[in-house]
Amino acid sequence: MSIPVKIENLEKSYEKVKALKNINLEIRPNELFGFIGPDGSGKTTLFRILTTLILPDKGTIRLGNYDVVKDFKKIRKITGYMPGRFSLYMDLTVEENLMFYARIFKVDIKENYELIEDVYSHIAPFRNRRAGDLSGGMKQKLALSCALIHKPDLLVLDEPTTGVDAVSRKEFWELLKKMQQRGITILVSTPYMDEAALCDRVALMQTGRLMSVEKPQNIVNSFSGNILTVKVTRMHPLLDELTGFDGTDRVYRFGDTIHLTTRRNPEEMKERIYHHLTEKGYQNIVVTQAEPVIEDCFLALMEPPEK
């Protein structure tokens, strides 16, 4: 029962801000599709139109044969939505929340339990605990259970792993993969670049525009230039030190290191950086060449590039 999503010429403005600018996108049935982009890039607005919460100014979104505006009642039955902010009842228990949503969707928990079992089994031991007392990761699992209880064909997740610890994030993505295997089309937005690599295709959004839509591996492959990783004992002033260094295109923090991109000969650049830093009195200087990962690619795609 996989369903495709077709977005055409979609536009939406809030008073003076254009939140979405002419979005065109096709998502294949059963795809795990990621949206990535900074805050305010329009991801949430797009999801809210998709889930019938707000109306577009222009353009259409079709889920299979259903239009999100005209057939909103039908859309609500076949879509599961997990808003960015935890939106279940804090003063109801885990089980009461799940029961409530099952009843509202007029489905039987026992019948559909098989679908949510992978997710719900993690939180089942806490079924009598109030949702407000759950940890961040467990809250997300409960929200996912509630979004899945009516066996949706399309699952829309708005930054589901924001504020969740690394272990829970990993678990959560494993669950998403399982849901995909059950034939659900999944749209997910995330600010974490590493999660984008787990999607079938990713769309990069910025200030309401769709910058690129690619497979994560293609994005990495299309990266032109070289990446150097720099590490020293005293990291704190390093970013300022290297910003604008001759021959670099972009300098940015990457985990606990600094990444530089360059189109010049990497070996020569390594030498020069090493010497420069030694002169400035840095110690334990390590400069290595690195393979680009998806985060590097997105930073390269984003405007405006640092000069």
Partner: peptide
């Protein structure tokens, strides 16, 4: 205020 209306509004209620 709590945002629970968001989750409720996507249901067939």
């Amino acid at each position: 205020e709590l945002g629970t209306i968001e989750q409720l509004n996507v249901t067939p209620i």
